[in-house]
Design a protein around this nucleic acid. Structure first.
Lengths: 153, 153
DNA sequence: CTTAATGATTATATAACTTAACTGTTCCGG
DNA sequence: CCGGAACAGTTAAGTTATATAATCATTAAG
């Protein structure tokens, strides 16, 4: 098999520029939709929502969420306070090592995540109505590349 | 010319999922790099940096920045206070309509933006080292599609 | 055992917002 | 014209999300 040719410097510069043109505004928009739904319909802030999202995404302790979100453990601990208070998250001390506190979604926390995501998916689907098949293909491929680039950075 | 076929529902679902897998973490990573540079090397917070960025991007008044960032005018006004204090931004009352205050980067504000972006470009280039030409192509195309989707939302 | 390391929490401070109230300016209908 | 509505911006006061530092409880290591 022939080795794939590397991208030119020029092309890489173009890609960087395009990333800056696209990511901040796009993520800001998507995030804004989630924020509105989360706040107005479910009474949780976007930050609280993201903590729940990380817990469901596999972060099972305060430290893991902090690591994933790149914020301090104490910030997470405080956010968890609120979420436990709201009945969306549980804290359970590990029996094998009692320093650890396992975080888990309550049924209503899980339902909240599902509901917010459902709303968001519907909204995104509306944005994507009429998307051409080849553009959708390009989107999938491009995002896969993007994901690979900054995964370990 | 033949009409392009629309993307299937399934494909759209896949795209939505991929967006959620990619955007938050990628933007978080890129943003983190900018934050470190801005804070550690230039003494401005990420939020202040983004205000400067919007001013250079064409938002010339408090209201325009607020609109672009989707935050309140008062929040921008307060951020501008700090940036003026730091000598990165100027406020100049319009002579034709004195309600308006034109925001403009000072030379050092402009230099700061350039420097932070230069650092970021270098870092991103490093991340993208060895990127294959066809992957770069896919990235450009995919991001263009993404940008189009949420531009007016 | 004692000390060090670890996970989590608490206390306290700060930055970045919000809403509400206010200032100054312009526009507009009478 | 002039008096009020609309508008751009600021100021005041309160909230939220974060940080750092100190502390507690637990486990690991010498």
């Amino acid at each position: 098999m022939s080795p794939t040719s590397p991208a030119s410097d020029e092309m890489i510069q173009q890609a960087i520029e395009r990333i800056w043109e696209t990511l901040p505004s796009t993520w800001h928009t998507v995030r804004g939709q989630v924020r509105r739904t989360a706040v107005e319909e479910f009474g949780v802030t976007l930050e609280q929502f993201h903590v729940l999202r990380h817990v469901r995404g596999g972060s099972a302790t305060v430290s893991e969420v902090a690591e994933a979100k790149q914020i301090s453990r104490s910030a997470v601990s405080q956010a968890v306070d609120v979420l436990v208070e709201k009945g969306l998250l549980t804290r359970v001390q590990s029996r094998t090592d009692r320093r650890y506190v396992a975080l888990a979604l309550t049924p209503s926390g899980d339902a909240l995540l599902n509901a917010v995501f459902a709303r968001n998916r519907a909204w995104m689907q509306a944005q994507m109505a009429g998307l051409a098949a080849d553009d959708a293909e390009a989107l999938l491929h491009g995002l896969a590349v993007l994901q690979g680039l900054f995964k370990n950075a």
